[in-house]
Design a protein around this nucleic acid. Structure first.
Lengths: 177, 177
DNA sequence: CCTATGTGCTTCGGATTCGAAGCAACTGGT
DNA sequence: ACCAGTTGCTTCGAATCCGAAGCACATAGG
């Protein structure tokens, strides 16, 4: 761990920076449009869009969290916000009493519909404009593979919930430096 | 703006989702590693890395903000945090009294060096592992073009500071919440 | 010199985010 | 039925982030 700094080569560095910067810029632009068109944050839009695509417009909280790269608590917060605005409803599931089913409302679909054209326009202007069809296909392929790989790969320490103390597997958390 | 919903085709949708998801997953993983290895947020790392690459390890606040996709106030916040930790110094510029020059310290370079190997490792494991050399080159090319285009394109409403009211560009009172 | 305007950065208030801890419901073994 | 372990979601505290407003310096025109 102290020997050879593997130092990315120029191409890898370019790809990495381009990925981060492009996604950041795109996300910022999209967020601005969503805010103006429907007072939605990006996550709220993702949630509504996911629900709109789901059968019956419903999903369990956990399934929603799986789709979006998001923490559970953050999802709870946004679901509450959307419920307050009347864009979704939250009802306890009949099967599992602890499970909550989130459903998009008519108002939610309206907001979604009102926001969508502008959303597509931003994507066209910013992301797709400078790219050819072949570029877009290639991009979808490469990034799709990368994403699938990342989803399969545990993020460096098991997400498992520990109810018993690890007692030996301690991981020197945040040492003061 | 209300006529034909241009509805992205399947390929565009795939590319878009793959981009957002891949970058989110990667960013999360990287953030976790940075936090464990050096108690740095992603932005803090970006700032230190940018400074480390700069001549003399120094940059003006504005130039830093240009490099990172970030708000001015957020940059101020993080610069203060880094200064408190002794990883950077902030000194008024001699030329322009209002300009602040941020400089990375030795401690800052140490933290950067301590964090870097793990950072590279995460990138290798998560992003580059499932990709060929050609993939990486292609990715850098395509996303590089997209990024450059986005940087050139104003984000849908001029970033210009208006000291006089635009009077025509009136905006719905986007109160958040 | 003085006023008007532009630029660089910070402060302020509020929104969003996360992880840890907690509560309630389910599951399997006895 | 009971207990321990697991799972689904929420609450809590703290950190991070942004935009609007503000302060201080800089520059141009009279």
């Amino acid at each position: 761990m102290t020997s050879s700094p593997p130092a990315l080569d120029a191409t890898q560095l370019s790809a990495y920076f381009a990925l981060i910067e492009a996604s950041s810029l795109l996300k910022h632009a999209v967020e601005q449009q969503l805010q103006e068109a429907g007072r939605l944050s990006y996550v709220q839009f993702q949630l509504l869009a996911t629900l709109g695509d789901s059968p019956g417009g419903s999903r369990r909280m956990t399934d929603l969290a799986d789709g979006v790269v998001y923490s559970r608590s953050g999802l709870t917060y946004q679901a509450q916000t959307l419920e307050t605005r009347g864009l979704v409803t939250r009802t306890p599931s009949t099967d599992d009493e602890r499970s909550i089913t989130v459903t998009i409302t008519e108002d939610g679909r309206s907001v979604l519909a009102g926001v969508f054209p502008g959303h597509v326009a931003v994507l066209g202007d910013l992301l797709f404009a400078p790219l050819s069809r072949a570029d877009i296909e290639t991009l979808a392929d490469i990034l799709g593979r990368a994403r699938d790989h990342m989803r399969r790969t545990p993020p460096r320490s098991a997400q498992q919930r520990r109810h018993k103390k690890p007692s030996g597997t301690d991981q020197a958390p945040g040492r003061r430096g």
